[in-house]
Design a protein around this nucleic acid. Structure first.
Lengths: 212, 212
DNA sequence: TAATTATATGAACATCGTTTATTTGATGAG
DNA sequence: CTCATCAAATAAACGATGTTCATATAATTA
């Protein structure tokens, strides 16, 4: 059936056109510019048309949310270049923070905003997120195997480490760091990562010369 | 001047009436019920009246924000009962999390929401928040003095620890913990606190019997 | 060519935060 | 006591928002 196939293609093209436009508004003009009417205006369609392709606005936000996780995952994979598990975990934290700070709108959408997530029940909708989380857990397992971390429950350690990095990112993005002077902020963040990783590392006082 | 004094009192009474009502809507019916019109309706005034007492909606949110910090600070002080600095710091983390999870709307307002904070520049508007932060720093200093933590920069350590607890709280409140089964969540949180504090503690492998 | 179906839209609805012109009610002066 | 003055309260409106629905247009099928 060539005809229904073409229609499906057109339908999908329209969906991605809407998404790309929404994304562009998001990145270029920031948060509040993403309104159904503005998206429609940018592609020169009526606002009502949007609703032929997305159930509601959160449906659009969720699609961007998924796209964000995809970008995040790809960036995250670059830490695989680092062979030593411990250094890789440290790199992991730094990459996480820099993604968050250089893609604030995305990060907000993915990890902070209420909208995209609230009408979503199925676990499979989280698959892109869980993939990244599993990657972190794998890294932690490697650290445990190599003796950098004690062999505790991986889920607990992963949640703890994730919470730490997410905490920094979200405090900065949502501007709760007034007590830290802006020009010191990035060095405090680096310092915090160093502090945490140095503190977390297993049995560093014993010193069998494990580190290079 | 008895007359202007009475007027000032009436004015303040109206302000607190509005705030209390906004607060009640917040706590009883959750987030989205706090609208200027609904607040006005609840106290049986016109919406326009609200604007005689608050510049805009964020002005109201900010007042609640401040009230939240006050509650938070008072709860936080209870950790002073714990004499040992290290145990006090651990208690600090647990108290932080339980405040966040038992007062989600408040916590959201204080540490996550964009609204209350965005039109606020003056440092003194943060004073209630900074007071709590200073309290944490004091605790960390005590831990360093007692040898539980290395003597690094207090600001860095405080930011790191705060980020960790805030990270957990905000991930849970904004529902980003789909990968952790809900009935395990609280034990994972406890586990994460244990993991972090156990890992963070200075020189625990040397064991000079410092701990009781 | 006529009937059917998918696509697009204009206009409307309800709601939001906010502003302005107007009315109400209390206070002070003559 | 009456009238002018001033602050408090409001009704009505403005410009937004997300969303829906009846209608019109274009494409496909019979």
């Amino acid at each position: 059936m060539g005809i229904t196939e073409r229609k499906q293609k057109a339908r999908l093209a329209m969906r991605t056109l809407i998404l790309d436009t929404a994304m562009r508004l998001f990145l270029e003009e920031g948060f509040e510019k993403v309104t159904v009417r503005r998206i429609a205006g940018a592609i020169e369609y009526s606002p009502a048309t949007i609703y032929l392709y997305f159930r509601d606005k959160n449906d659009i936000l969720f699609a961007l949310h998924a796209e964000g996780f995809d970008r995040f995952y790809r960036l995250q994979q670059t830490v695989l270049q680092v062979k030593d598990p411990w250094e890789r975990l440290r790199m992991h934290a730094r990459v996480y923070i820099s993604f968050a700070l250089e893609n604030r709108e995305y990060y907000d959408l993915m990890f902070i905003m209420r909208g995209p997530v609230e009408k979503l029940k199925a676990a499979r909708d989280w698959s892109v997120g869980i993939r990244s989380y599993d990657f972190l857990k794998e890294n932690i397992r490697d650290c445990m195997a190599a003796g950098y971390l004690p062999k505790t429950e991986v889920d607990v350690a992963a949640f703890a480490i994730w919470s730490f990095t997410h905490g920094m990112a979200s405090l900065i993005i949502r501007q709760r760091c007034a007590m830290i002077s802006p020009d010191l902020l990035s060095s405090v963040v680096d310092g915090a990562i160093d502090f945490m990783t140095a503190r977390i590392e297993k049995g560093k006082m014993i010193g069998k010369g494990r580190r290079k």
